[in-house]
Nucleic acid binder design. Structure first.
Lengths: 177, 177
DNA sequence: CAAAGCTTTTGACCTGCGTCAAAAAAGTCA
DNA sequence: TGACTTTTTTGACGCAGGTCAAAAGCTTTG
């Protein structure tokens, strides 16, 4: 199986639970600790944070995408991120401490954990490069390649903040295409 | 000891080697595979890649900073990055395959490996946020906080490309400060 | 130490994208 | 279905930062 994220539900079956959320519901609220990883089975989630009143999307997770309050999980502090359901969603949930216990008991799965981490890392590297020197239009086109059909599912404002541009600019970019 | 990167030389002593490089020397050339991680003992390194003739710095590593051709290491492909010594440097070198072997033999050190990965990840998250909505000046100030004294050691052009701005703009930003 | 490289600064000019404001369109619900 | 809310589009305008070109400083090396 190619995508390591798809192996998670089976590999960690004994410590994973499945929850459902309604559109608009928060899975986690900024300011609190959160040691849960969320893997989307169906639906769509996003994490976001506030910068001077402005809501900025940090990350999207569509089917078999992973989100979490990374800062809280990795540093043990309260998180700057909130996590929200963009659609009615069913979500696999995985507690990070339980995951570590599980990995101790099943060291053969360290490899999968590492693969997942690397995937997330490379993803970020790519995004960072895009933000470094791509125009608004090019960023948008990149996004469409990585998340085809996202425009039908996520509001323009959320996409714009994710791309680091204003919604007005994104609207104009889209109009011509 | 607070910084996991400082624990690497001891923890992986039996698979690490120490090399020296002269200013300007390449530790790795883009287009080739590279499965080595470089940890700076003294000196300074950077990784960079080309975008339309332009040399873009992807990452700096000063003392106890880590660089590698991440794409090659993680995907096993040839790398888009080159790695260069910015000063005469002494560098710990660690082969990724040997590291995996070592971790199998010493599972107690998986934890350290994971800590290091998380550190790198959070670093990127922070950089990404900075690129998303900070002005040229704010990006520069951020950099100075994270790498104090880097201006005395790295050329303006390299810093500018790392920040995603032109050297002219960086020069002007700096003049006023 | 002079000649040949680099690196940094300065200037003039231009443009992509941000801001503010308001209209238009689409979604939600009693 | 009509009233209200939210999302998207359109317009006018300004500015941060890009581009191009050239001068001024620094380094390196024979």
């Amino acid at each position: 199986m190619q995508n390591p994220l798809r192996q998670i539900p089976e590999a960690f079956a004994d410590i994973i639970s499945l929850q459902t959320y309604r559109k608009g519901q928060l899975l986690h609220r900024a300011g609190q600790r959160c040691h849960t990883l969320f893997l989307v089975k169906t639906g769509a989630l996003r994490s976001f944070y506030l910068v001077e009143e402005r809501d900025v999307t940090a990350h999207f997770a569509l089917e078999y995408g992973l989100v979490g309050a990374v800062d809280s999980i990795m540093k043990g502090t309260s998180s700057r991120y909130s996590i929200e359901a963009l659609e009615d969603s069913t979500v696999y949930e995985l507690n990070y401490a339980e995951l570590e216990g599980h990995l101790n008991r099943h060291p053969g799965q360290e490899r999968l954990a590492r693969q997942v981490t690397q995937l997330l890392y490379l993803d970020l590297v790519e995004r960072l490069e895009g933000m470094t020197f791509l125009s608004a239009r090019a960023r948008y086109e990149h996004l469409l390649e990585r998340y085809p059909g996202i425009t039908q599912r996520v509001s323009l404002g959320h996409i714009a903040s994710y791309l680091g541009i204003t919604q007005e600019t994104l609207s104009r970019v889209r109009r011509q295409g």
